[in-house]
C-alpha cells in the first residue's frame, strides 16, 4: 500500500492553471521533496493534499483510501499532519495550550511534560506563542504536527526564515524521524533538500517537470535551467 497517491490533480483559478495533471506516489517511509520556483503550485498542491482546497479534477489516496472528498479534519484523523508556510499557531495561547490542543486531537496518552522537555520548551511552557521568536514559533509549528503521531507529514518550507543554526537543528530533527513516518517536504534550501530527501519531484508551472534521486535531479540540465542554476 502506498502512503500517498496523487492522481492527475488539476486546479485552476479563472484562466490561471495552477496545477495540471499532477501525478506522483509516495512509498511508506519515503522522504520526498518537492522543489520548484515560486508560483510553481507547490503550496496549492499541499493545500489540496490536506483538503483545504478542492481540486477541479483528479484523486488523492491516503494509505489506500480515496480522500478526495474528505474534509481536512478527517484526513488528519487518518494520519496526515501538516505544517504551514506561514506559522499557523494559536498565537494568543501558551506553548502548553498549543501542544495540549494537538495532543487532545489524537487522544494520545503521550506525556506533555516529556514532549516539552525533549524539545527544550518546558521552562517556557507558559509563554504566549506570539511573544516567541520566529525560529521558536517555527519549531512549535513542526512540534504541533509531530505530536499528532502522524503516518504522513507534509512540511511546507519548514526552515523558511530560520538562521543557519536553526535550519541545521530542524534538518537533523526531521532526519531523525522514525521511518514509520512518510515525509513530503517543500523546501527552497537545496542543502536541506539534498540532505533529507530520498527522492525529489520538480514542479514547474503547475506540472511535474521530472522526478528522481537527489543526484539525478542535481545533474538534470532541465532542472538546472528552470530552477537550480549553475551553482548546484
Amino acid at each position: 500500500m502506498k502512503a500517498l497517491e496523487i492522481k492527475n490533480i488539476s486546479k485552476s483559478y479563472g484562466g490561471l492553471d495552477v496545477l495540471i495533471n499532477v501525478y506522483f506516489t509516495l512509498e511508506q517511509g519515503e522522504r520526498r521533496a518537492i522543489i520548484g520556483p515560486n508560483g510553481a503550485g507547490k503550496t496549492s498542491l499541499f493545500n489540496i493534499i490536506s483538503g483545504i482546497i478542492k481540486p477541479d479534477s483528479g484523486e488523492i489516496y491516503l494509505l489506500g483510501q480515496n480522500v478526495t472528498r474528505l474534509s481536512t479534519y478527517l484526513r488528519s484523523r487518518l494520519g496526515l499532519a501538516r505544517t504551514f508556510q506561514r506559522n499557523t499557531l494559536f498565537n494568543n495561547l501558551s506553548i502548553l495550550d498549543n501542544v495540549e490542543l494537538a495532543l487532545h486531537s489524537t487522544k494520545s496518552d503521550s506525556n506533555i511534560k516529556d514532549i516539552l522537555r525533549n524539545w527544550g520548551l518546558w521552562d517556557k511552557r507558559k509563554v504566549i506563542v506570539k511573544e516567541l521568536s520566529y525560529g521558536e514559533q517555527r519549531q512549535i509549528e513542526i512540534l504541533l504536527a509531530l505530536v499528532q503521531s502522524p503516518k504522513i507529514i507534509i512540511l511546507d518550507e519548514p526552515t523558511a526564515g530560520m538562521s543557519p543554526m536553526e535550519t541545521k537543528t530542524i534538518t537533523e530533527m526531521i532526519k531523525s524521524l522514525s521511518r514509520d513516518i512518510t515525509v513530503l517536504i517543500i523546501e527552497h534550501d537545496m542543502d536541506v533538500v539534498f540532505n533529507l530527501a530520498d527522492g525529489i519531484s520538480v514542479l514547474h508551472n503547475g506540472q511535474i517537470l521530472c522526478e528522481g534521486s537527489p543526484d539525478e535531479i542535481k545533474s538534470n540540465p532541465l532542472v538546472k535551467e528552470v530552477y537550480l542554476g549553475t551553482d548546484h
Partner: peptide, 10 residues
C-alpha cells in the same frame, strides 16, 4: 484562535 490549524489537527 485558528480554525484552519484546528482542522489540520483533526
Amino acid at each position: 484562535e485558528n480554525e484552519l490549524r484546528m482542522q489540520s489537527l483533526g
